[in-house]
């Protein structure tokens, strides 16, 4: 009798596909032998990875950027939280510079004015030694003396202070200012020049040395030349008094009252009350 049909089929398969079966067996052996497979695949994978690295920005860049955009859009609150302290400072500084620019442009416009009133105002302004624009702007954001400090030159120790607000630690500020001053003068001051002005956010600090001590005046707002002159005079008058009597350095109350005397009434330009029509309105309508 012949073999059962399944065996016959098997024989036939072997006859017909012997070559393929052999090939299949080698392949499957290769496939199951991890080391051999790894050897075969390694070059291919390496090439693919290299390609991927090279093309990554092109292929995935747009997708990732899009994903990031969505992410940022959906978490605006968080982004604002992170950025706002930085932006705040930038904006303040920006506004300050813009105001300075505005001052110039108003000046220009004032020069172009021919109305009698404007001429009159220009005269008043020039009599007081300030520009018309400075008058207008100083009405908007008046300069204000915030603080005066007397600091020992070498050690940075605070000798005296007069302040409108008492929120920060003056000892530390005095020290830091002295360090900054020392650093700047060390780096640039070989010529005997000294640091005279520091701008910080919307503050301007004026530094003046008088022998063993220096005086710092912190001013907020837009400082015009008249304010600066007046401040300069006050600081000098105070410094002269201070050098005259060494007792001030030792007696805190005496020092405080001297500072009070010189700086408490210190006020910027006492401008006359605005007349019938405000100066700003006048410039605006005179275009």
């Amino acid at each position: 009798m012949n073999a059962p049909p399944e065996d016959q089929l098997e024989q036939l398969k072997n006859l017909l596909f012997s070559e393929e079966i052999e090939k299949f067996e080698t392949i499957s052996e290769e496939f199951n032998d991890y080391e051999r497979l790894e050897k075969k695949l390694e070059p291919i994978l390496e090439k693919r990875i290299a390609e991927l690295q090279a093309d990554f920005p092109d292929q995935f860049g747009p997708v990732i950027t899009k994903a990031l955009k969505v992410q940022i859009k959906e978490s605006q609150e968080e982004v604002i939280e992170v950025l706002s302290p930085i932006m705040g400072r930038l904006i303040k500084k920006y506004v300050q510079t813009e105001i300075a620019k505005l001052t110039e442009s108003i000046d220009q416009r004032m020069r172009d004015l021919f109305s009698f009133k404007a001429t009159l105002r220009r005269w008043i302004a020039s009599l007081r030694g300030v520009s018309s624009a400075e008058i207008i702007v100083s009405e908007l954001i008046p300069a204000k003396l915030q603080e005066v400090m007397v600091i020992e030159n070498d050690s940075g120790l605070l000798i005296g202070r007069h302040s409108v607000s008492a929120d920060s630690d003056p000892d530390l500020i005095a020290g830091m200012l002295t360090a900054i001053k020392a650093f700047v003068e060390d780096a640039y001051g070989k010529t005997g020049e000294s640091l005279e002005q520091i701008e910080y956010e919307t503050f301007t600090l004026y530094l003046q040395s008088f022998g063993s001590f220096y005086i710092v005046a912190a001013v907020s707002g837009v400082v015009d030349s008249a304010f600066k002159d007046e401040l300069n005079d006050a600081v000098h008058a105070f410094a002269i008094e201070l050098t005259r009597d060494k007792g001030y350095h030792k007696d805190e109350t005496k020092m405080m009252s001297l500072m009070e005397q010189h700086f408490s009434l210190f006020s910027p330009l006492a401008l006359p009350p605005a007349s019938e029509d405000a100066v700003v309105k006048e410039t605006a309508s005179a275009r």
């Binding site: 020992e152 030159n153 070498d154 050690s155 020392a182 650093f183 003068e185 060390d186 780096a187």
Partner: peptide
């Protein structure tokens, strides 16, 4: 260290 940092130190 800038020499002036040392000035007036105790």
């Amino acid at each position: 260290v800038p020499a002036s940092y040392y000035l007036g130190s105790s």
